[in-house]
């Protein structure tokens, strides 16, 4: 076997893999947090404004959802480089992934806000609540309650999609594993490890999401 030309996988690589794991977790968390906040704001606006402005806003979000993430990442980092302000892969990756997350989150929250009956808000107003009080005490608590399973679904897909940030050079888990593969030539062991990592994060959370959904439907 020619495999003696390559150094096999050893414990010394664990630090390298751990960096990849941490980077994946970091960029996913950043994108989920920023994407949720932006999505919450935009979802609220979309449930609130007129049909026309809604269409404009919806069009922009639609582009974010209809162009593959990988193309968005390449376009953004190339554009930033071409106008002379190259950014760190982590920063450009976070920006693109957050906006991408936002596009999906805003739909989730919009649905939540629209599920709050108009009459409840009218009732709140007639009881002397201000506009923002109806938001804080009626729309947010009632609107957000039902969207948790869908929110979790989007968040989980962001963790999985964060693997794509590797194309612009961010050393997340899949890219570290790819480099290890090219050195060790042991693709199967490494990839199974990587798959297990994603699975261990994603599977319990998806079960929890299903559990909550079932509990809410009864």
């Amino acid at each position: 076997m020619g495999s003696s030309f390559f150094t096999p996988l050893s414990w010394n690589d664990s630090g390298f893999i751990l960096t990849g794991v941490l980077n994946t977790v970091t960029i996913s968390l950043v994108a989920i947090i920023i994407g949720t906040l932006l999505g919450l704001a935009i979802g609220f606006i979309r449930a609130e404004v007129s049909r026309f402005s809604n269409m404009l806003l919806g069009g922009v979000l639609d582009v974010l959802r209809s162009v593959p993430l990988i193309i968005q990442l390449i376009l953004f980092s190339t554009y930033i480089g071409a106008i002379g302000h190259p950014l760190d892969p982590f920063v450009s990756g976070s920006i693109v992934l957050s906006l991408y997350t936002m596009a999906f989150m805003s739909e989730v929250f919009r649905g939540g806000f629209e599920s709050v009956q108009r009459s409840m808000i009218t009732a709140g107003r007639s009881l002397g609540m201000s506009y923002w009080q109806t938001v804080a005490y009626i729309r947010l608590p009632i609107g957000l309650r039902t969207v948790f399973p869908s929110w979790l679904g989007v968040a989980l897909s962001v963790i999985k999609d964060s693997a794509l940030v590797s194309v612009i050079g961010y050393m997340e888990l899949l890219r570290t594993s790819e480099q290890l593969i090219s050195r060790t030539q042991q693709p199967l062991e490494i990839l199974i490890g990587v798959g297990l990592f994603y699975f261990i994060i994603s599977y319990p959370l998806s079960l929890y999401g299903k559990y909550v959904e079932r509990k809410m439907s009864i």
């Binding site: 989980l156 999985k160 999609d161 693997a163 794509l164 590797s166 899949l174 790819e178 593969i181 693709p187 199967l188 990839l191 199974i192 990587v194 798959g195 994603y198 699975f199 994603s202 599977y203 998806s206």
Partner: peptide, 14 residues
Amino acid sequence: NTPALFQIYMAYFG
């Protein structure tokens, strides 16, 4: 529960 990219790598390299 695993990324699509992982599955493509698995099919191509794994």
